[in-house]
């Protein structure tokens, strides 16, 4: 039983990473019918931007220029990095995808892969090959809850993720911008006929997704503080699977599927050798998709790409 809860907590942590990244894939796919294959690398860029911001803020605090408690530095790091990374996302949309809006979808997918490689190798060129260490923003404390060990970091990661997911959900449900996004997911061709600037909504979608990926990147770096330019690939692909599993454009679906992925991985790993963990975990997911090809909340949707 203790082992179960121990695994449960780990699953929630990994689920948080996957869910936050999956949201970006899902929103962009939902709204522009486009798989943004550079999104995993945005997660990586977000982690690195977080590294820069955290290093800067802690240096300022150490010099006494900024007398702030650690948790404020953490919150600031997350918010500033989300903000900065959202511009990276908007830039990717503007340069990479907007010119291809009318092009075959395969062109956009290839472009996405290329942008991903550029982000990885660009990082390598600028920062070099050595891995970097993310500054420790919070002191780790472990609580013993009747034999189940929980660190304050894990709790923080899950809580921050859930807060961001709820905030996104409220934004999409209650604001006129969110309403425009929902409408665009349904039928993006007629969006301009409502007087709504389609490009602005596309930018906004990329900004939101990239901001959440940056948050995931920082939370990931807090749990596993060694970064390299290729961390976006494997976690990006896994989160992409979560987005598909959740269903096209579904916020709820991406979150649930992200957590489900975390659960399957951790619990398969708990009983199987780590060498076959992903093989079995992703076979299970493939099996789910055989029975639910549109994912949990996706609908068979014949995309209306023309008027």
């Amino acid at each position: 039983m203790q082992l179960f809860f121990q695994n449960l907590i780990n699953a929630l942590q990994w689920g948080s990473f996957y869910a936050l990244i999956a949201l970006g894939y899902s929103m962009v796919y939902g709204i522009l019918m486009l798989f943004n294959f550079a999104h995993g690398d945005i997660f990586m860029v977000g982690a690195y931007i977080g590294f820069g911001v955290a290093t800067g803020l802690t240096a300022l605090a150490a010099m006494g220029a900024l007398a702030l408690p650690n948790w404020v530095i953490l919150v600031l790091t997350i918010l500033i990095s989300m903000f900065l990374t959202s511009f990276v996302g908007m830039l990717v949309e503007r340069i990479g995808y907007r010119p291809l809006r009318e092009a075959p979808r395969a062109s956009a997918a290839i472009t996405g892969l290329m942008i991903g490689i550029i982000l990885e190798t660009g990082n390598l060129a600028i920062l070099g090959a050595q891995r970097i260490r993310f500054p420790s923003l919070i002191k780790s404390t472990t609580y013993d809850l009747g034999g189940v060990f929980v660190t304050n970091k894990k709790i923080m990661i899950v809580v921050v993720s859930l807060v961001l997911m709820l905030a996104l959900n409220e934004f999409i449900r209650r604001t006129r911008w969110g309403m425009a996004m929902r409408a665009m997911a349904f039928d993006y061709v007629v969006i301009p006929l409502m007087g709504v600037p389609l490009n602005t909504i596309a930018s906004l979608t990329f900004a939101l997704g990239s901001g959440l990926a940056a948050a995931a990147g920082i939370l990931f770096a807090i749990a596993y503080p060694v970064l390299d330019p290729y961390i976006g690939i494997i976690y990006g692909w896994k989160a992409f699977v979560a987005a598909i599993l959740g269903g096209r454009g579904s916020i709820k679906g991406a979150c649930l599927a992200g957590f489900l992925l975390g659960f399957i991985e951790i619990f398969v790993g708990a009983y199987m050798p780590s060498t076959v963990r992903d093989l079995i975990a992703y076979s299970i997911i493939l099996l789910i998709l055989v029975f639910r090809p549109h994912g949990f909340f996706g609908e068979p949707h014949s995309a209306k790409l023309r008027l």
Binding site: R176, M179, R182, A183, A185, F186, P197, K304
Partner: peptide, 19 residues
């Protein structure tokens, strides 16, 4: 080409997005 996933009111409000 209505937005079938939006309510009647939301469809009308979306049309005033830029107003």
């Amino acid at each position: 080409r209505l937005f079938g996933n939006l309510t009647v009111m939301e469809n009308l409000k979306l049309a005033t997005f830029a107003r």
